[in-house]
Structures are given as C-alpha cells and as structure tokens.
Design a protein around this nucleic acid. Structure first.
Lengths: 210, 210
DNA sequence: ACCTGAACACCGTTCAAGT
DNA sequence: ACCTGAACACCGTTCAAGT
C-alpha cells in the first residue's frame, strides 16, 4: 500500500489549498495529483467537505502538538502568552487559506476537529492561569480571559490578512502590536486590582496554583 | 426602465447571499430571479466577483449611514462605543454571510468599498477620542485603540458565528461580554494613567477637542 | 476493499447575433 | 445600450462495472 491513498489525497488537497485557496481544491485535481481517477476520493471520503475537514483536522492537530523543542523556556508566563499569540498571528499570515479553513464553519462535525480545538483551548487557559498567578493579568475567569486574547488575535489576523486593519497603508497597528497593547493594559489593571505594595515581597514570586 | 436591471441584480444576489451563503449566489440563479437570461449580468458587471463587490459595497454604505434617529443620544461616549461594538456584533450574528463578504478579501478593488470602510473607521475613531476625553479610555493613539476594539469585535463575532468561542457549549463568553470586559479593563487602566484625584472636579467634564 | 469510465446536472464565461 | 441562445470547459456526485 505504501504511503496510503487516503493520506496522499489529504496531502494533495493541502497543497492545492496553500497554492490557490479553498476554491482551488478540486476533487478532480486532487485525484489528478495523486494519480487516481477523478472519483477515487469518494472511496475514502464521503464528499469534498469531508476531505476538507480532514485537512483542517490534520493542520489543527499539528499546531496543538508543537514539538517541545521550539517551545523554549520563556522567562515568564506573560511572555509565553505573548509568544503564543504572536505565533497564532504569524501562522494566520503565512497560511491564510489553512487559517480560514480551520476556523470556518465546520459543516461536518469531525470528532478530530472538536478534540483538537478543545485541547488548544485548554493549553491557552493554562498559560493564562499561570500569568494570573504572577500578577501579569487581573484575576477572574481564566477561560474568559483566554477568549479575550483568542478573539483579539483572531480578529486582528483576519482583518490584517484582508487588508482591513491599517487604514491608510501606514503600518498603524499590526495584530502583534494589538496583542502587546492588550497585555500592557491588563498588567496595569492587574496592578490596580491587587497592588504589590500590600504585604509581601516582589509580586513575581511563585504562588500556589489556582 | 423602472427599478433598473442593475439594482435588481444586486437585490437578487443579496437575497441569495442571505438565504444560502456566498456559494448560493449564482449568476444563473440571479438572472433567473430577475427574469433575464443567464448572462445578462455580464452587461452590468464584469464578472461574478464584481457583482459580489457591489453587494458588499451597498451593505457597507448602509451600515455606515445609519439613520440618525436610531443613534439615540447615549449618556456617554463610552456607552456609545459599547453600543457601536454591540451593533457590529449583532449585525455579524444576524447576517453572517454579508459579514463574511464585506470583510473577506476584496479581489476587485472597488472605490466604493474603500471609501465606505474609511468612513466607518473615521467614525469609530471619533467615538474613541471622545471617550478618551471623558477619561473612560487611556490616552494614546485613538486610531490604534479603535483598531483594538474593531479587531476584538471582529474576532469575537467570527469565532462565535462558527461556534468556536464557547468551549463546552456553556455560554461562557459572548462577544458582547468580551467587549464589556475590555471596556472595564481600559477604564481601570485609564484611571491609573491619570488619577481623577489630581486637581480638577469630576473627570467627565467636557474638555476641548483633541 | 479499492478503483475506473461514462453520465448527469450544474457552473462561469465567451461569442455571434439580435433590437 | 441592452439582451438572448448556443457553446465551451469545468465542477461535484452517482452508478454500473471491473479486479
């Protein structure tokens, strides 16, 4: 069997996606690239949407399971949060078609997609909780705070990729800058919420988990 | 001529867009609804994308020029900003296909689309500046602060419309709540930036324009 | 269990005409 | 100036076969 026709089909679809966007992904061209007939894909996927869902699931799984080497030790949870959001934005900018596919409406509900998304969500929430413990973020529901970052990064990346962020062509506000701005405001808000002058030493000392 | 074939084509395309998303907009079905042949649209638009751009431009123009009656006097610029962002989110939720079309990549660069977008941007920046004057928002570049709100509202609406915001089906964070959260954090940051205890009376007194 | 070839209904777009 | 009808190349999907 060798590489497996199914994986080859997913590979070909992903390649077409990167080259020409989702509308360039054609079952006939996918079959052509793999070297099978134009309807061989129907023996592995129910239809075109199911094949696209498989591409999205693979992309999301790869992103969640980033090799630990590249996740170098960050100096603080706040910097890890910043780096995670910047990575998210860079991914959206470098692979806009994959980004739109993964976060588009999933007509078919793939189990793979759901669990991968949930895993990414949990990972981010963990970083947010750690950043709250160091005083970089204000207290409160970490899931909600994580959603705030995720929505900002998502919207910034989407607007930027469509050219709707900078108003006059000036580099007036990159999505990365917006993330940095939010981190700055939240640090100020966190310090106002529980000032570090209260009783103990430096606020960045490790505290007990929430 | 009556209503004009061109406008009728745009109407039909908008109707199909609302009913079945962008992939339901077909030049042949548009012609069918208007009662002309399947390629009569080519006498009014260069191609399908140009017709879609006209639909997007009309939608954006309508949104920018909201009848002043509905823009009731808000008690403060902060509340006007909140209402503007909530309106944006409600629009995205009620008309997801129009939302995606307007903010998708514009392959054809329509002059109409550009100026309407610029006008919406300027309108939002004005509200932000007013909110800064009342001390509800921290000082700094108002264009950048407006981009922060716009990116958050956009991302929240997009994630919510695709079902990617609430992690467990719980109503854990609506886009509107995220906007409210951001407004709360920015108010705290604004008060920390220039505390109202400095010299003058209540911070909400009208000041000179920026 | 996997693949092929013909076929169907649908598209976007072009072109030669019509009035 | 606006519209029509035929035609072309392309799709997604189905079906009857093949091994």
């Amino acid at each position: 069997m060798g590489p497996g026709t199914r994986d080859a089909l997913i590979d070909a679809a992903a390649g077409l996606l990167d080259e020409g966007g989702v509308e360039a992904v054609t079952l006939r061209e996918v079959g052509r690239r793999v070297g099978v007939s134009h309807n061989a894909p129907y023996k592995h996927f129910a239809n075109k949407e199911t094949l696209l869902a498989a591409v999205a699931a693979r992309e999301l799984q790869r992103r969640v399971a980033i090799p630990p080497e590249t996740r170098e030790r960050r100096p603080s949870p706040e910097e890890e949060l910043r780096a995670t959001m910047h990575r998210y934005i860079a991914w959206a900018r470098e692979h806009p078609a994959r980004f739109k596919l993964v976060f588009g409406a999933w007509s078919v509900d793939s189990q793979e997609l759901g669990t991968a998304a949930h895993s990414a969500q949990a990972q981010l929430t963990g970083i947010v909780t750690a950043a709250q413990d160091t005083g970089a973020l204000p207290p409160g529901d970490p899931v909600r705070l994580a959603s705030l970052f995720r929505a900002l990064a998502h919207g910034g990346a989407d607007l930027a990729s469509a050219g709707h962020l900078a108003p006059d062509g000036k580099g007036h506000a990159s999505p990365e800058q917006l993330i940095d701005d939010l981190l700055g405001y939240l640090r100020v808000a966190a310090e106002a919420a529980h000032p570090p002058t209260s009783r103990s030493g430096p606020a960045s000392s490790t505290s007990s988990p929430a």
